[in-house]
C-alpha cells in the first residue's frame, strides 16, 4: 500500500471521510448492544418512560436478580451447553472422517458420493417431512434427537474436504510409505495440519448450536430440555402480556423490557467471550468453503 505521507490533499480528505463513515456504521452496529445493556441495568420505571438512551438510568441489578433466581433460566443455560458441546463433538466426529474420505482420489465413486452430499444443499425436503421423520424416528422431545439430527451439514463437509484436497499430496504419501494407515494419517498428519480449517468448522458448529432456536422450539416440549434461546423466546413472548408480572413490576423496580434486556445480555456474554479467540480463524475459514478453483 502507498504510504499516507504520499497521499495528495484530496486523497487525505477522501480517506478521512471514508474512515468517519466506517466509524458511524461501526457505532450503529455497536449501539443496539450498548442500548440493551443500558436498559438491562436501568430501573423498570426509567425504561418504561423511554428515558434510556446510552447509559443506565437509575442503576439497578433487579432485572438480573429476577432472571438469575429462576431455575428455568439455569436449566436452559445448562441445556444449551449440552447441545453446543455434545453437538459440536458429534459433528466433528461425522464431518472430519467423511471429509477425509471424500478428499482421497482412490475412493471409488468419489464423484457420486460428493454429489450425494452436495445435493442436500440444493434440495431440502422442508419442514414438514423433516418433522414427521423425526416423529417416526421417535426423536421428538429428545435431547439426543436434537444433538443427532443436526450433526452433519454438507457445507462443512465440503469446506473441510476442499482444505484437505489443498494439502500437498506428499504428506499423505510420506506417511503411507512410513506404514501409516488411513486412520493414522488422518489423526497424526491431516488433523494437525488442518487446525485453521477445523477451528473454522468447530466455530460454525458452536455458533449454530448456541443460536439454534427454531427446531428446538418445534421438537422439544419438556421445560427441562429447552435451550436458552427457546427459554428466551418464551420469556419474551410471555413477559409483556403477563398480568401477574405487570402487577409485580411496579414495586420490583424492573419491567418486561429490562428483564428481556438482561436475558439478552446473559445470552450474548458467552459469545462475546469466545468471539476474539475465534475471530482470527473465521476470516480465513469463510473463504475455504463453497467457491473452489
Amino acid at each position: 500500500m502507498i504510504s499516507w505521507n504520499l497521499y495528495s490533499r484530496g486523497d487525505k480528505i477522501f480517506s478521512i471521510v471514508v474512515s468517519l463513515l466506517i466509524g458511524m456504521f461501526t457505532i450503529a452496529t455497536l449501539y443496539p448492544f450498548i442500548y440493551i445493556a443500558a436498559v438491562s441495568f436501568s430501573s423498570g420505571f426509567a425504561a418504561q418512560a423511554g428515558k434510556v438512551v446510552l447509559t443506565p438510568i437509575q442503576l439497578t441489578t433487579e432485572a438480573y436478580k429476577y432472571i438469575l433466581v429462576q431455575p428455568e433460566f439455569w436449566i436452559s443455560y445448562r441445556n444449551t451447553f449440552i447441545y453446543t458441546i455434545g453437538g459440536t463433538i458429534l459433528s466433528l466426529l461425522f464431518i472430519i472422517p467423511a471429509a477425509y474420505a471424500l478428499s482421497r482420489p482412490q475412493l471409488i465413486g468419489r464423484r457420486y458420493f460428493n454429489l450425494f452430499i452436495a445435493f442436500t444443499m440444493w434440495f431440502n425436503a422442508g419442514l414438514i417431512p423433516f418433522y414427521l421423520n423425526m416423529r417416526d424416528l421417535n426423536l421428538l422431545d429428545s435431547m439426543f434427537g436434537i444433538i443427532l439430527a443436526f450433526a452433519v451439514n454438507a457445507f462443512n463437509i465440503i469446506l473441510l474436504r476442499n482444505f484437505f484436497e489443498s494439502l500437498p499430496q506428499s504428506f499423505e504419501e510420506a506417511a503411507r510409505m512410513d506404514g501409516a494407515n488411513d486412520f493414522q494419517i488422518l489423526w497424526k498428519v491431516f488433523i494437525p495440519l488442518s487446525k485453521p480449517a477445523i477451528a473454522t468448522i468447530t466455530l460454525f458448529c458452536i455458533v449454530a448450536r448456541w443460536n439454534g432456536f427454531f427446531w428446538a422450539m418445534v421438537l422439544l416440549q419438556s421445560e427441562d430440555k429447552i435451550p436458552l434461546q427457546v427459554f428466551l423466546r418464551h420469556t419474551l413472548a410471555t413477559l409483556s402480556d403477563d398480568d401477574e408480572f405487570a402487577m409485580t413490576q411496579l414495586e420490583a423496580a424492573y419491567s418486561a423490557e429490562t428483564v428481556t434486556a438482561a436475558i439478552i445480555v446473559c445470552s450474548v456474554i458467552p459469545v462475546l467471550l469466545v468471539y476474539p479467540w475465534i475471530q482470527k480463524y473465521f476470516e480465513k475459514g469463510i473463504l475455504l468453503g463453497g467457491v473452489k478453483e
Binding site: 442500548y35 436498559v39 434461546q229 428481556t260 434486556a261 436475558i263 439478552i264 445470552s267
Partner: peptide, 13 residues
C-alpha cells in the same frame, strides 16, 4: 454471531 431470538429481542425493544 448473534441468534435470531436475540436480534428479535433487540428489534422489539
Amino acid at each position: 454471531f448473534i441468534s435470531s431470538v436475540i436480534i428479535a429481542g433487540i428489534v422489539i425493544t
